[in-house]
């Protein structure tokens, strides 16, 4: 079991998201994260899908995705050949000044931003690799996370870029 990131270029048609997610459901594959957004090509959108599965499952998914009529391109992004990012927003409880300064220090160490602050909480914004965010989230649990939002991964291939 391993996390795979698939980058898709799809026609921006109504229903394309349902079709895509339906394909995964039909094949019994669990999507751990899915992002969609417009891209540099008019009429097309880019989707980044993260799934957990074996290499052979990934291969099957890739082929099934390529078979979808509205999918223009499927790229399987290898971790070491891609910039992978996730955006996390969280509200962390700070019960006293001590906690507040510790949270701020840790946030700084991780390159996170304090997006807002109240007397007893701060909102932290962090854009990083998913694993780094995981670690940061674990740390913040000690202080008490009130709310956590993550956008899910988006990724771009290095060297050649996603598309040639």
């Amino acid at each position: 079991m391993q996390t795979h990131i698939i980058s898709l270029l799809v026609e921006n048609h109504p229903g394309v998201l349902t079709r895509m997610s339906g394909m995964f459901t039909m094949r019994g594959i669990n999507i751990t994260s899915l992002t969609v957004s417009p891209c540099e090509k008019e009429g097309l959108s880019r989707m980044t899908v993260a799934i957990d599965g074996s290499e052979s499952e990934l291969e099957k998914v890739r082929k099934q995705l390529s078979n979808l009529i509205e999918v223009v391109k499927v790229v399987d992004l290898k971790e070491d050949k891609a910039i992978i990012r996730d955006l996390c927003l969280m509200r962390v409880h700070v019960k006293d000044l001590n906690a507040r300064s510790e949270v701020m220090q840790l946030a700084e160490a991780y390159g996170a931003k304090i997006a807002d602050a109240t007397l007893d909480s701060v909102i932290i914004e962090l854009t990083e690799e998913p694993k780094t965010i995981d670690r940061f989230v674990d740390l913040m649990k000690h202080f008490g996370i009130k709310q956590l939002f993550r956008t899910g991964v988006t990724a771009i291939g290095i060297d050649t870029g996603v598309e040639k």
């Binding site: 109504p14 229903g15 349902t18 079709r19 339906g22 039909m26 009529i69």
Partner: peptide, 16 residues
């Protein structure tokens, strides 16, 4: 019909 037949067709269209 569009969503019902999505998984049972090679492709489908809802013309608007």
């Amino acid at each position: 019909t569009f969503t019902i037949t999505m998984p049972i067709t090679k492709h489908n269209f809802l013309v608007t």
